[in-house]
């Protein structure tokens, strides 16, 4: 009897990391960090609050982040998902996986774990960079740890939901222009979501970016609010259930070529 093992989970995930080579996913993640940090800093140093040492608080960069994350994330998440999934379409990877016991659904779940790790890392770097650069720029006020952490965690959760959605979308629709187009539309919803009624923000995953924003301007005034934890919790629960459902349907689907 051969000692060959088939379809174990560990190697599948390690293989997903190995496939990232030459795929420039790191570069895209880097762009995401760079874009978010740059937009945040730009809006911070050009604000009236920043000019006056008395109002130079962390609320200013948090308002910048609350805007920069929804502007930058949706499209680049779509690109990350698309690059990771399209190689399976191009390289006959779904079938090859199936013939060694790795079903298409398992492949998608491994991809979420891999890409998710990259997104988590990018998020940590982004927030640390904003904090460090804010310090350098002269923000001496105490850090609102609870508010900031709340934003970091909830915006990361929304990012991961959008990423999962795009992994499924790119797997389902071979033509990657469709997924990228939807990513672009998502950006519009994410950025302008707060301008619509509340139900609209809850209607699509991208709308949730407006629900996790912790600082922003109401007229002339900079105000802070806690992120809508409950909404995000419901979103994550629903998305996780759907992702498991859809990918297990991929598992039962017949092999395509």
């Amino acid at each position: 009897m051969s000692a060959v093992t088939v379809g174990a989970t560990g190697p599948v995930v390690v293989n997903e990391f190995a496939k990232l080579r030459h795929l420039r996913v790191g570069l895209v993640a880097g762009l995401m960090v760079l874009g978010t940090v740059a937009l945040t800093l730009l809006s911070t140093v050009t604000s009236a609050e920043f000019a006056d040492p008395a109002t130079r608080t962390w609320d200013v960069p948090l308002a910048g982040l609350s805007l920069a994350v929804p502007m930058v994330s949706p499209l680049l998440l779509a690109v990350v998902a698309s690059r990771m999934v399209d190689i399976e379409h191009q390289g006959n990877g779904w079938l090859m996986g199936s013939t060694s016991g790795v079903t298409p659904g398992a492949l998608c779940r491994a991809k979420l774990l891999t890409a998710g790790t990259v997104v988590v890392a990018a998020t940590v770097v982004t927030h640390l960079a904003v904090w460090a650069l804010g310090r350098l720029a002269g923000i001496d006020a105490p850090v609102p740890v609870g508010l900031w952490a709340g934003f970091a965690v909830t915006s990361l959760a929304v990012n991961l939901v959008v990423l999962a959605l795009h992994l499924v979308l790119s797997a389902k629709v071979d033509n990657q222009l469709v997924a990228l187009g939807i990513g672009l539309l998502g950006t519009v919803v994410a950025v302008f979501g707060s301008g619509f009624p509340g139900w609209f923000a809850h209607a699509t995953p991208w709308g949730y970016y407006s629900l996790v924003a912790v600082a922003g301007y109401e007229g002339e005034h900079l105000v802070t609010t806690a992120p809508s934890y409950l909404s995000v919790l419901v979103l994550v629960g629903l998305a996780a259930a759907l992702f498991v459902l859809v990918t297990s349907r991929f598992d039962r689907q017949e092999a395509r070529s």
Binding site: K19, R21, H22, Q90, G91, N92, G93, T99, S257
Partner: peptide
């Protein structure tokens, strides 16, 4: 072992 229809292989690797 099997090889079905188009040969597999990731082009970027």
């Amino acid at each position: 072992g099997s090889l079905i229809e188009a040969p597999p292989g990731y082009g970027h690797l």
